[in-house]
């Protein structure tokens, strides 16, 4: 049973089709990197997993629950899937610990002490223990993104989604975030990452999905994707982002 499964998912904004009949799956413990040119539908695709983007056709099944089914309790489903955004989206009016505690308390019903203990443990893990009482506005981008990852992990998710987690970062901060993600991947977390960091893909991805104009053009094991991409569009894309 795959952890995440897309079955012929299509989505339109008015007349414009952003996702075209997308079918793929992510097994438990698998790390899948989604790449492709801008506007190709990568972010939209992963946001279908936790229903942040509704879709009109097809089915997405997460942890054996159909995302689009009317009986699905979306808040409960979303609580089990961590999500990391391009612009961090920490809550600016709460300090770091409060950011990590909020959903643990309000959604999972943990006590303040339980939540804080969990938060401290995760802050240690992402190397942010010293910043527990700071506000997001007082932290660098890389630090904020590590907090955002910890916030997702605090919910004990069955899978993590990453939507271009390093695209908004200054170059010298990219690695501190990627290091956390690599560690997570090596621990066996199920991950779906939209990213242009091909180094990360080479290191930890099991599969790479290449998208273009709303279609999944290529969906292959890492070695195959980097060795001999079948499609011309994937070859062009790789040559553009790798030879700089």
């Amino acid at each position: 049973m795959p952890m995440i499964e897309f079955k012929n998912v299509s989505k339109w904004y008015g007349h414009f089709q952003v996702l075209k009949d997308c079918t793929t799956k992510v097994e438990k413990g698998e790390v899948v990197v989604v790449c492709g040119p801008s506007g190709s539908g990568k972010s939209t695709l992963i946001k279908c997993v936790n229903a942040l983007e509704p879709f009109q056709q097809g089915e997405v099944i997460v942890n054996s629950q159909s995302v689009g089914a009317p009986t699905t309790q979306l808040p409960q489903l979303r609580a089990k899937i961590g999500m990391v955004f391009q612009h961090f989206e920490l809550f600016p009016h709460m300090n770091v610990t409060e950011n990590l505690n909020l959903a643990q308390i309000k959604v999972l019903g943990r006590s303040l002490d339980e939540a804080t203990a969990k938060s401290q443990m995760l802050l240690k893990r992402v190397g942010m223990t010293d910043h527990a009482h700071k506000f997001p506005g007082q932290l660098s981008g890389g630090q904020q993104q590590r907090i955002a990852i910890a916030r997702g992990l605090a919910m004990d998710p069955v899978a993590m989604l990453f939507d271009e987690p390093t695209s908004a970062l200054d170059p010298e901060m990219i690695n501190e975030v990627l290091d956390v993600m690599v560690e997570l991947a090596q621990e066996g977390m199920t991950m779906m990452c939209v990213t242009h960091e091909m180094g990360f893909a080479r290191k930890v991805a099991h599969r790479v999905i290449f998208m273009d104009r709303g279609e999944i053009v290529e969906d292959s094991p890492k070695a195959e994707f980097f060795g001999t991409p079948r499609s011309e569009r994937a070859q062009q894309f790789l040559s553009k982002i790798l030879h700089h």
């Binding site: 946001k47 936790n50 942040l52 979306l74 808040p75 409960q76 489903l77 979303r78 609580a79 089990k80 899937i81 961590g82 999500m83 955004f85 391009q86 612009h87 989206e89 920490l90 809550f91 600016p92 009016h93 909020l102 959903a103 309000k106 959604v107 999972l108 916030r151 997702g152 919910m155």
Partner: peptide, 30 residues
């Protein structure tokens, strides 16, 4: 507010009401 704030609240499993109560309104009122 950035659109991502609402999405981040919802992605954590907060209900729409909780997202307003704990995320959007405290920021908007400031």
């Amino acid at each position: 507010l950035p659109r991502g704030q609402r999405l981040a609240g919802m992605a954590l499993g907060l209900t729409p009401l909780q997202t307003y109560r704990h995320v959007l309104l405290p920021e908007a009122f400031r």
